[in-house]
Design a protein around this nucleic acid. Structure first.
Lengths: 203, 203
DNA sequence: AGATTTATTGCCCTTGGTGCCATTAATGTG
DNA sequence: CACATTAATGGCACCAAGGGCAATAAATCT
């Protein structure tokens, strides 16, 4: 990936590795031996760094596959904010969600590789809820602002939960058929999940 | 709770404890020291049993708060099956979901206590996804059967995911205001989550 | 009583994760 | 250049969850 947090000043001992380097090493090992079969020691060794140092870059082993997800949340917030006021709230949210999932194709590990690992590995599936919670919060806050409610009120929360539900269903479908390597299939599936919900509720 | 799996025969050494006894001890400790602050050793000690034995009753520490959730899934399946054919699929699912959450009030630990722990403790929040997956599967299978689709198709999956989304939003709201100790508030909130979704999508 | 069955539990080991802190490698200042 | 300062590295000791294994205990069956 690009790089790590821009350090405030160049003083002190420079960082000896980067998030990107760690992720590359980690994903290579995950592919070889699986997630559970890869120890932090093995990753540290391959990166050429002490095990203890890994914890300065990631809070836990489970956090490695997510990379710097938290950074992307600012982007998501911006996407929501730039939705025009004259479209219905739900439509704006939906559009922002779709846009949010448009990922650059050059990334390593690829978005698909990341998500495949995350959504197929039970430990990671579980751990991801904590990431999702922050993401949902962003939606709840947006919906609350647009509707004059509080973020913790039922409707904003429902909007967050349901948006996540649709995204997850779309991701699982995306990963299910192996042909669709390009991200377009994913965005399309998010749309289809939404229309799926509408027909489900109307039928 | 009532008891453990009915043993096939009465042969062999009898079980020295029960799921119920373990849960009681565990919840007492969780209340005292918190979930993370309670070691399996402490639980084993209070139950009066070896630590190793706990693993014969629960797969992991995280599984203790859920009790025998898997058992209730059969009940859920039955609730879905008994929905009349002439109501729309989504309505039947919704009704079954509501009914599923009507819990006996005499249980120890109480349903509310359980859910409060589960939904407030990050480790448990995460772990619960795995439980939810089975629950969602039940819905997806039902919807698939009723609509002539496959359980892994997009719409049934969306139905499962969205039903879960509504339930979680309702549970969180339920736990948010402390007055509503009786389960009725919960069932009502599930209804309100559903109408919340409808107004969100129509506005 | 002895064979059989089944649950308990202790022992040992691996792994993730944390606290602590000495060490290292850079930049700044006199 | 020497030396203070700053900040990252990584070793060490330790804890807790979890799993494999095997000995043992407590019941029933013949």
């Amino acid at each position: 990936m690009t790089s790590q947090q821009v350090r405030a000043s160049a003083r002190g001992r420079p960082e000896v590795t980067s998030h990107g380097a760690i992720e590359q090493a980690a994903f290579a090992l995950f592919a070889e031996r699986g997630f559970a079969g890869t120890t932090l020691n093995a990753i540290a060794e391959r990166v050429g760094v002490g095990r203890r140092t890994l914890f300065r870059y990631y809070q836990s082993k489970n956090d490695i596959p997510w990379g710097q997800f938290d950074r992307t949340l600012d982007h998501f917030r911006a996407l929501l904010d730039q939705q025009p006021d004259d479209v219905p709230v739900h439509a704006g949210v939906h559009r922002a969600v779709v846009e949010f999932n448009r990922f650059p194709s050059g990334a390593r590990p690829s978005h698909r590789e990341r998500m495949r690992l995350i959504l197929t590995t039970p430990e990671l599936q579980a751990h991801s809820v904590l990431r999702y919670a922050e993401w949902r919060r962003v939606i709840a806050e947006h919906v609350a602002r647009r509707t004059g409610a509080q973020p913790d009120d039922l409707m904003p929360q429902v909007a967050g939960h349901v948006s996540l539900a649709l995204s997850l269903a779309a991701y699982e479908a995306w990963l299910a058929h192996p042909e669709e390597t390009h991200a377009d299939g994913l965005l399309d599936l998010i749309d289809r999940a939404m229309t799926g919900l509408r027909t489900y509720l109307e039928a």
